[in-house]
Design a protein around this nucleic acid. Structure first.
Length: 800
RNA sequence: GCAGGUAUGGCGGAAUUGGCAGACGCGCCGGUCUUAGGAACCGGUGGGCAACCAUGCAGGUUCGACCCCUGUUACCUGCACCA
């Protein structure tokens, strides 16, 4: 009688596979549903239960959609290029191709044991040549359209990984992969001009249904600010010093200027700068600092005055000193600022350190103590004096600047262009040839894919050049344009490249002539529901939205935004409440759970353990609770009767169908499961149920625990697969009880409850309430001021 | 510092969005079966003998507040010398 999951689960997995039960159908007349989960990076450690939770959400929704009659695309793939695999290859001497294949095989077997309803004919592997051919194709299209450029720049460089990192990958001055300190290094860098799409990435958020915190993070990341560019002049030199400010109305309060140490004007006028030695020394000092040090020493302002040149304030003609200081970044705005110490705390700290004048232009604070950054009346500001509204004073100043031709309104973004090359082997080769005559020449489209050469030693070079630079047969080539001797680019793309468009390939994974067929794209796109981790909300999602918008612009995809809806699951913490990690030894392997309790129990537990979107610790004993539930469901098979059930149980069924249906849509899986547990308790209390009722129950539970449900469905004589059987419907009228319990309150405090027919009017309930001994006692001798009746809920008597 | 969020039994968490706080599960207590059980099953379980007291803390609005408002504390997540 005990449920034998060890034989029943593999049985159904095999049947689903043979029948291709979960294949998405191209060219179907049915309504489509495209559910997308973030494809995993196949690491050597295999999956942990966090992956299972991440996929189980849309697994349940996709399964429900199929039962509701949708044509469902629910695919899986592997984001397999990347450093960990390459580092493992360096350490062990096993080729990354082999490592990747082994890891993918391991992940696949783990996923299959859990019984996910993926369409296994559409598996995508970003390291497959037939896949990265199209990643390179998109890159060339971007190159063609002016979205790719190369520049020598100070970049985030990880000395440990020996690789250039994008801004996104080096947050907080730490390498995202190995967590070493990042240093700034001058290098040739490939950039993708994502900033060109900044405004559209921002405005596109209005059209999509993302969780509010996801939207907010993207908004912050793009970091749009509105302000003005102002051209200062250098005294006695015909040269402009351009700055960006959000408060042009404080121009009268400018007492000095600050430039980033790397600002090109220093080099241009080094002959005029009398203390050039000190300036160079300071520059050298800054270059040595890691990003971490540069941002940590917030309070201690350092800098050097440029002796010999000074700036002229365009609104009042005053000459003001210029400093270089590392609190101004070359990468934001123009790399130079006008300093208004009275109303900016950083400028204030700097002015105090260097003994510079502080002029108040906004009244309201005490500038002898700190900068005043709030609103107030404008003073010492010429034509702005007396204005009290920030908006108006900014507008008036902008008008003045534009009239005089010394500045204009402008916007800035925190988002920077995307540093796109890595000096590594295990990535997509950048399909560009460097020709001494023709410059950068794209590899012709018909030569794609540009394959990674087979090689053995993946150690990067000491100066951070790619391992590919050592392969002469790869490097030396003919220029596709002039036919002369040329050299290939040896850097590869970052890991984010392959994941920027994978959801398009799922739609037509074996297409040899296009990244996907336009008709199929038109049918399946956009992704209806995308679920993943919060950690990918800024990087992966912004990158892929950018690529998708570009593909839309060149007519490859049919919609501007790739994801109609985005949600995020919470982490599973270790039993100790800490984040699961190998070093802490608190990782739970899904295989162990399947071995001991079965896939259905694992699936049920990861969704029952708490609110889907928040983090919750793993609890072995709670897993056992789900095991008991599954066993009790199995036990129902021996409780079936042909005849009708009690009205009470029938009503409980209708209520549960309603609740589970709506809870799933809101990802409230924990309460959906709780409702089915409650119904189970009701069934056991009742002692029996009809076979029809059991049929309803197993279809409701099927998205969560499909194996046991298939088995019960078969034994009940259900038609076809339970997984494809129609989703149960409920009768609204039967979800309502005939009698309801009404709480009777005195002055808002519960005093008694009464049973009343549903939808009773106030008089009926009032009579019932007053018939209660407790109520009669409570109101005895008191004056009734007011009576409030909420139908089917409460009756409140207010007494004095 | 900026932005967003959270706070409910011993634990994970519910609460139809202003209407009986603690659903469901774990744990715990008691029982049944057993040579035994860290197995299974059944029953009980916020605190207090009680009146009553309980949703981080202090107020407010309301007939009625976990829910709305004001203030406050703690924690989490993201960004951060962004001009």
């Amino acid at each position: 009688m005990t449920y034998d999951f060890k034989s029943i689960e593999p049985k159904w997995q095999k049947i689903w596979d043979e029948k291709k039960a979960f294949s998405a159908v191209d060219g179907s007349e049915k309504k489509k549903f495209y559910g997308l989960i973030e494809f995993p990076y196949p690491s050597g450690a295999g999956m942990h239960v966090g992956h299972i939770k991440a996929y189980s959400g849309l697994e349940v929704i996709s399964r429900k959609r199929r039962m509701e009659g949708y044509n469902v695309l629910f695919p899986i793939g592997f984001d397999a290029f990347g450093l960990p695999t390459e580092n493992y290859a360096i350490k062990t001497g096993i080729h990354p191709r082999k490592v990747t294949d082994m890891n993918i095989a391991k992940f696949t077997s783990q996923l299959r044991r859990v019984g996910f309803s993926f369409d296994w004919d559409r598996v995508v592997d970003t390291t497959d040549e037939d896949y990265y051919k199209w990643t390179q194709w998109i890159f060339l299209k971007m190159f063609e359209n002016g979205l790719v450029f190369r520049d020598t720049a100070l970049v985030n460089y990880c000395p440990s990984c020996k690789v250039v990192l994008s801004n996104e990958d080096s947050q907080g001055g730490k390498c995202d992969i190995c967590h070493s300190d990042i240093i700034q290094k001058s290098k040739d860098v490939w950039y993708l001009r994502i900033t060109k799409y900044a405004d559209r990435l921002l405005s596109g958020l209005d059209e999509v249904d993302y969780l509010p915190n996801i939207k907010q993070q993207q908004i912050n990341w793009i970091g749009k600010s509105t302000g003005a560019f102002v051209n200062f002049t250098l005294a006695g030199i015909d040269e402009k010093l351009r700055i960006y400010t959000t408060r042009p109305d404080t121009l009268f309060g400018v007492t000095f200027m600050v430039m980033a140490p790397e600002h090109p004007i220093i080099e241009k006028y080094k002959d005029r700068i009398k203390n050039i030695d000190a300036v160079e020394a300071y520059k050298a000092e800054c270059a040595k600092k890691t990003e971490f040090e540069r941002t940590q020493l917030v309070k201690d302002k350092t800098g050097v005055r440029l002796d010999g040149i000074c700036a002229v304030n365009p609104v009042n003609g005053k000459e003001i000193p210029i400093y270089i200081a590392d609190y101004v970044m070359m990468g934001y705005g123009t790399g130079a600022i006008m300093a208004v110490p009275a109303h900016d705390q950083r400028d204030y700290d700097f002015a105090k350190t260097f003994g510079i004048d502080i002029i108040e232009v906004i009244k309201g604070g005490d500038i002898t103590k700190e900068a005043y950054t709030e609103d107030g009346e404008m003073v010492n500001s010429g034509f702005l004096n007396g204005m009290t509204n920030k908006k108006d004073s900014i507008a008036k100043m902008l008008e003045y600047l534009e009239e005089k031709g010394i500045g204009e309104a402008g916007v800035q973004y925190k988002m920077k262009d995307w540093a796109f090359n890595r000096q590594r082997y295990w990535g997509e080769p950048i399909p560009i040839v460097h020709c001494p005559h023709c410059g950068m020449v794209p590899v012709p489209y018909d030569e794609l894919p540009l394959r990674l050469p087979d090689m053995q030693n993946f150690e990067p070079g000491q100066n951070g050049e790619s391992p590919l630079a050592k392969v002469e047969t790869f490097v030396n080539c003919k220029c596709p344009k002039c036919g002369g001797d040329a050299k290939r680019e040896t850097d590869t793309m970052p890991q984010w490249a392959g994941s920027s468009w994978y959801f398009l390939r799922y739609i037509d994974p074996h297409n040899e002539n296009a990244l996907a067929d336009p008709e199929k794209l038109k049918y399946w796109m956009p992704v209806d529901w995308y679920n993943g981790g919060m950690e990918h909300v800024t990087r992966h999602m912004i990158y892929s939205r950018f690529w998708h918008k570009f593909l839309y612009d060149i007519g490859v995809v049919p919609c501007d935004e790739p994801y109609a809806k985005r949600t995020a699951q919470g982490l599973i913490l270790g039993p100790d409440g800490e984040k699961m990690s190998k070093s802490k030894g608190n990782v739970v392997d899904p295989n162990d759970v399947v071995d001991e309790y079965g896939a259905d129990v694992l699936r049920t537990y990861v969704l029952f353990m708490g609110d889907y979107t928040s983090a919750a610790p793993w609890s072995e004993s709670s897993v056992r609770g789900c095991k008991r539930f599954i066993e009790r469901v199995w036990g129902m098979l021996f409780m079936t009767k042909g005849k009708g059930s009690t009205e009470k149980l029938e009503s409980a069924f209708h209520k549960t169908v309603k609740k589970v249906s709506s809870d799933i849509e809101q990802m409230k899986f924990n309460t959906a499961i709780a409702a089915m547990m409650s119904l189970t308790n009701d069934i056991y209390e009742n002692g029996s149920l009809t076979t029809d009722e059991l049929g309803i129950f197993v279809r409701l539970l099927c998205p969560f625990a499909p194996h046991i449900c298939e088995e019960l469905w078969e034994r009940l004589g259900g038609k076809g697969l339970c997984s494809l059987a129609p989703w149960p419907v409920y009768d609204e009228s039967k979800t309502k009880d005939d009698t309801v319990t009404i709480a009777v309150q005195i002055c808002g405090k519960l005093r008694d409850t009464v049973q009343a027919p549903a939808d009773s009017d106030q008089a009926t309930v009032e009579a019932l309430a007053k018939a209660s001994e407790k109520i009669a006692k409570a109101i005895d001798g008191k004056q009734i001021v007011k009576e409030i009746y909420v139908k089917n809920k409460i009756f409140n008597i207010v007494v004095k």
